[in-house]
């Protein structure tokens, strides 16, 4: 048995153990602390599965955005534990069902066809037409760009949904996700030191994304985290849902993507196709605009809506 396989086994056991903890913990807060750890562990799992792009995403989302979101909620909600846990009958039935599904899945996974079908050669063969070197970026922006475009609309709808939860009398008010607590020196220092570095790292990850692991979503999430950090430190105020500037940043990326997609009809005959001569630059332009929009979207989703005036 090689060291790598032992590492994999340890990692799998740890992930499963943390997952069990997350489900079984009686109180909410420990469960969520466990869940945030699970997100960080998954980042290592992705590295082991040779998906560095996904690992970057998982690190940014699981380590940053989701954690802030869930921990913030868990620390505020007053009902920490269920009054009465689900009945033993339900638990046994659910357990049997889930066990059956796990067993079926496990069996299917172990008997998947060998050699596995793969699109890797086709994805690599198409790369010259897109001008980028990272096949995952090519999938996201070219081969299956429609998924990415619609996914941005999903994010936008989530932002709209979150804003929709503003009480009517607070529409246009500033969200105050972290209350009106006084500034904490340590957090201010962290924000002052970390935010500039973080912005550089975020831009770097988008920039290398064309040819190496990285890309708009990973970079955008890091930028969002830096935006959140300076807001947490109280250095800048969150923007209200009525801010026209914020809304324009939110739609800039998807709108540019859509415009280029339609221009594809004229330039190279197909929706969402790129003329090979300009493909690389068009894709970089789209990624840059998407990064800004994603940063704004993720930030707004974590901040949440303005709360009821009292």
């Amino acid at each position: 048995m090689s060291a790598a396989l032992i590492l994999d086994a340890c990692l799998v056991l740890l992930v499963l153990a943390v997952a069990v903890w997350t489900i079984a913990a009686r109180e909410t807060f420990p469960a969520i602390a466990g869940f945030v750890s699970y997100g960080l562990l998954l980042a290592i799992v992705w590295v082991r599965l040779s998906s560095v792009d996904v690992a970057l995403t998982e690190a940014a989302i699981g380590g940053g955005a989701t954690g802030v979101l869930l921990l913030g909620a868990a620390a505020r909600l007053t009902d920490r534990a269920g009054r009465r846990p689900a009945g033993i009958g339900l638990r046994i039935m659910a357990g049997a069902l889930c066990l059956a599904i796990t067993a079926a899945l496990a069996f299917v996974i172990l008997t998947l066809p060998d050699p596995a079908p793969t699109l890797a050669p086709q994805a690599v063969a198409g790369l010259p037409a897109t001008g980028v070197g990272n096949p995952i970026t090519a999938v996201l922006v070219a081969y299956r760009g429609i998924d990415t475009l619609l996914e941005k609309i999903v994010l936008l709808l989530a932002v709209i949904g979150v804003w929709c939860l503003t009480p009517d009398d607070s529409w246009g008010a500033l969200p105050a996700p972290w209350g009106t607590a006084r500034q904490d020196d340590a957090i201010v220092l962290l924000a002052r030191l970390l935010a500039p570095v973080g912005v550089v790292v975020g831009v770097y990850i988008v920039w290398v994304g064309a040819d190496d692991p990285g890309g708009a979503f990973q970079g955008g999430t890091i930028l969002a985290a830096m935006w959140l950090l300076v807001m947490m430190a109280g250095l800048i105020a969150p923007l209200p849902a009525t801010s026209r500037r914020l809304r324009r940043v939110l739609v800039a990326g998807p709108a540019l993507f859509l415009a280029v997609a339609f221009a594809g009809f004229a330039m190279s005959g197909d929706f969402l196709s790129y003329p090979p001569a300009y493909a690389k630059w068009l894709i970089k332009l789209i990624e840059a605009a998407l990064t800004l929009s994603i940063a704004a979207m993720v930030g707004v989703l974590v901040i949440g809506p303005a709360v009821r005036k009292r």
């Binding site: 890797a120 994805a123 998924d147 949440g304």
Partner: peptide, 30 residues
Amino acid sequence: RGAAAGLGGDPVPQALIITGVVVGFAATAL
């Protein structure tokens, strides 16, 4: 399992996972 053509894995599912993670995050936020 779909590692081929000099890549560590099939890039299509890897890209779709990224999209899925994003959508899952949006769902969590909502």
